[in-house]
């Protein structure tokens, strides 16, 4: 493995069919089949997109929590006013 600092060299390019680990030595790429599969360009982009999509549920969850609060306030107005 190269001991030389190569800033920016491993920043992935979004090119179909080309490894995300642009600039990585082939030896580094073959550290294990499972790891390689997980670390392909497409897989990593997919993971980021998945994380991004997962954040969308924050809105309905907040609305649901607020809805419960609103329901409790209505109950209070009806029964404890």
């Amino acid at each position: 493995m190269s001991g030389v600092h190569r800033p920016g060299v491993v920043r992935a390019e979004r090119v179909t069919g080309v490894s995300a680990l642009t600039g990585l030595d082939q030896a580094e790429l073959s550290q294990g089949e499972a790891t390689d599969r997980a670390l392909t360009d497409e897989a990593l982009w997919r993971e980021i997109a998945h994380n991004r999509r997962a954040e969308l549920r924050l809105v309905p969850e907040a609305l649901l929590a607020l809805l419960v609060v609103a329901g409790l306030i209505i109950l209070r107005e009806v029964y404890f006013r």
Binding site: V10, I48, A62
Partner: peptide, 23 residues
């Protein structure tokens, strides 16, 4: 603070994240 959380759906850093595997 908790009312800000839903905004994380749209205002997060994922748009600038990219596959990056530094040493």
């Amino acid at each position: 603070q908790f009312l800000l959380i839903p905004f994380h759906s749209f205002k997060n850093h994922y748009s600038k994240a990219r596959p990056h595997l530094p040493r």
